[in-house]
Structure formats: C-alpha cells, structure tokens
C-alpha cells in the first residue's frame, strides 16, 4: 500500500494541491521555447525526454525548430537539471514520453474538462495559457 502511494506521488507532477509547477527561469530556455509555445515546466517530463527533444529539433513535432548546437546543449542542460530521470517518473528510459499531452496524469486531469469550443479557441492542447492564465508563472489552477 505504501509503495502504491509513493508511485502515485511520483506519477503526478509537482504539487497537485496548490496547482503550482515550477516554471522555466533560464532566459535562453524561456526565449527559445516560447517563440512557438509556452516554455513548459521542466519537471513535466523526465530528463531522458528532454534529451531526446533537444537532440531532434530538426523534426520537432512535425516542424523544424533547429537551434545553434551550443544553444540546444545549454537548454538541454538546464531542462535535464530541473527534473528527474525516467526511472523515478514511472517512464521507460529507453522510450521516454515526448508529448506532455499523452502522459496519463495529463489525460486524467483534462478528461471532460475542455469543451470543443474551448479547444477551438485555444488552438491546441499545447496552449496551456489559453485556460491556465497563470501557467507561465507556474500556476495551473483552473480558470
């Protein structure tokens, strides 16, 4: 039972009670990621995921998001330093998750919460701030 509870704790990012998830604070990471989408909190994905994402930017979810090598490496170092390895997040380090929207807790949290109209207005489930106005500051309370 105790082990089960610990697993649940790890499976859900950060503090579900306060809906706070530590935001990106590194200026380069903030600037580059947020050119196309909110700079997602590093702790949402395991370190292995960020490594894979930052070493495959030429095909970033269907688009070329290439960066100079030094910038990509610096951003990867920041992101991986702000989260945990896959083994501690109930994920397979060999096939780490790449889409936050496909994580079980994400699906659970959003199931039945987003109307078609709200999704249309947001444009995509990647657009956290459309509904979570404080997301860029780490606050994911429902609006």
């Amino acid at each position: 039972m105790r082990k089960f509870l610990i697993l649940i704790a790890f499976a859900t990012p950060a503090l579900a009670d306060s809906d706070y998830i530590a935001p990106v604070t590194d200026p380069l990471t903030q600037a580059e990621c947020s050119a196309c989408h909110m700079a997602y909190p590093p702790s949402l994905l395991p370190a292995e995921s960020w490594h894979k994402i930052m070493t495959s930017l030429s095909d970033h979810f269907g688009e070329d998001a290439s960066l100079p090598e030094a910038d990509a490496a610096a951003i990867e170092a920041y992101l991986t330093g702000q989260t945990r390895p896959a083994a501690q997040m109930r994920a397979d380090p060999e096939t780490p998750p790449l889409r936050i929207t496909e994580l079980p807790w994400f699906k659970r949290e959003h199931e039945g919460e987003v109307s078609r109209r709200a999704l249309e207005k947001a444009g995509s489930m990647a657009n956290c701030t459309a509904c979570h106005r404080g997301a860029e500051r780490g606050y994911f309370e429902d609006d």
């Binding site: 196309c36 979810f61 688009e63 070329d64 995509s124």
Partner: peptide, 26 residues
C-alpha cells in the same frame, strides 16, 4: 516539406498583414 506544414500559409495565413497562428495555438 513536412506533412503538417504544407505551405507558409499554414501558420501565417494567406494575409500576412494580419496575425497568424502557430500549430500550438500561439
């Protein structure tokens, strides 16, 4: 190119005097 971005207009729209939208919604 890549299947999700067949044209410049996919994100920038056919009227570049107005705002476009990334596939992320931004």
């Amino acid at each position: 190119g890549k299947p999700d971005t067949p044209s410049c207009t996919t994100c920038h729209t056919a009227d570049p005097t107005r705002a476009g939208q990334a596939r992320t919604g931004k």
